[in-house]
Design a protein around this nucleic acid. Sequence first.
DNA 1: GCCATTATTGACTTCTCGGTCAATATCTCA
DNA 2: TGAGATATTGACCGAGAAGTCAATAATGGC
Lengths: 191, 191
Amino acid sequence: MPRPREFDPDLVLDRAVELFWAKGYEGTSISDLEEHLGLGRQSLYGTFGDKHELYVKAMDRYAASQSWTRRDLLKPDAGAEEIGQYFKGLISAVTQEPRRSCMLINAAIEGDCEHPKVAGRCTDNQQNLTRAFRHALEGAIAKGQLDRKTDTNALALAMVSQSFGLNVMARNGASPATLARVAESVMQVFK
Amino acid sequence: MPRPREFDPDLVLDRAVELFWAKGYEGTSISDLEEHLGLGRQSLYGTFGDKHELYVKAMDRYAASQSWTRRDLLKPDAGAEEIGQYFKGLISAVTQEPRRSCMLINAAIEGDCEHPKVAGRCTDNQQNLTRAFRHALEGAIAKGQLDRKTDTNALALAMVSQSFGLNVMARNGASPATLARVAESVMQVFK
DNA sequence: GCCATTATTGACTTCTCGGTCAATATCTCA
DNA sequence: TGAGATATTGACCGAGAAGTCAATAATGGC
């Protein structure tokens, strides 16, 4: 029977995420991956397929590893408080040095979003985030934190847009304080 | 005396903008440029310097060619109306096929924003847009369209964030109608 | 008409890219 | 214990990358 592999594919994938996240798809070479993942070319290709397949698998791993960030928004009793916390966490994440925007946003901007698999992951991310915001916004209405006749769908989309925008502003060097002002401005919709 | 060059550097730069805008810095090769710009390698290097210098010059040309988009925001009597028009124009621009986000946002997300010259252009863009929004917001207050005690600085930053976010959402395939709902949501701050 | 200067052309160099191949090592089951 | 199956290793491949060089062409001043 087969010789067992000498590494844990999931752990290796985590390191691939780091690389693709930091340097992008085109900016990461197979040699980079060999070195940073600590395994040979053939093991790489044998386990994950070619570079693009590996990239997609890394995106999935990234998305799974980040899904907890939406968890509080999805709590049954989520409301304004959870939305505020979400933005706080986001700002803290995107202002870590070295500055790194969400890998799925990077993927959307890089040309590779033309590949259906990559594009699919990007839009999934957008939809998941929209749904999470909408849920928390409906909670906020139930709690009396938000005008009952608010269009929660539109406001959820606006908050997704703000989240994405904060990523870009952080890449442009905006300070945590500056981004916090943006978040405060967003939170003004609540009573 | 010297042989005169056979092309107009500015027109050539326009074509370089198209290429870098569509395919990014890494995604554009010198051969691509030769072909699309219709001139030989040596002319390219002799006129613009190496690839990275050409990229920076293309960014400047792009920024100059897009500055009119902020013009209405900066009119002496600008207010809510001009801000609404800005978002309308932006949505129309980013939903043209093929989808293209602002070249300066692309630059900020691509790894090349680590080069000081590229990063400088990106932050300049952010500051110019912030200033333009702030000006229009102050106008809106003067016109009674906005609460007099609004923090125009924070709101301007939030609008920059929205602008950037709309670019990303458009790349993710969001429809013009979806983006319009985001813009409407933003415009709710006005009375 | 010749000279100095710059533009253009296209071949060329060196390097790195993604991907593959053949040889070897390591496992399990019979 | 060895046979079959998979993993690992490192050399290798063609293509394409950025950038350079030497030769040729075109100009204005003398």
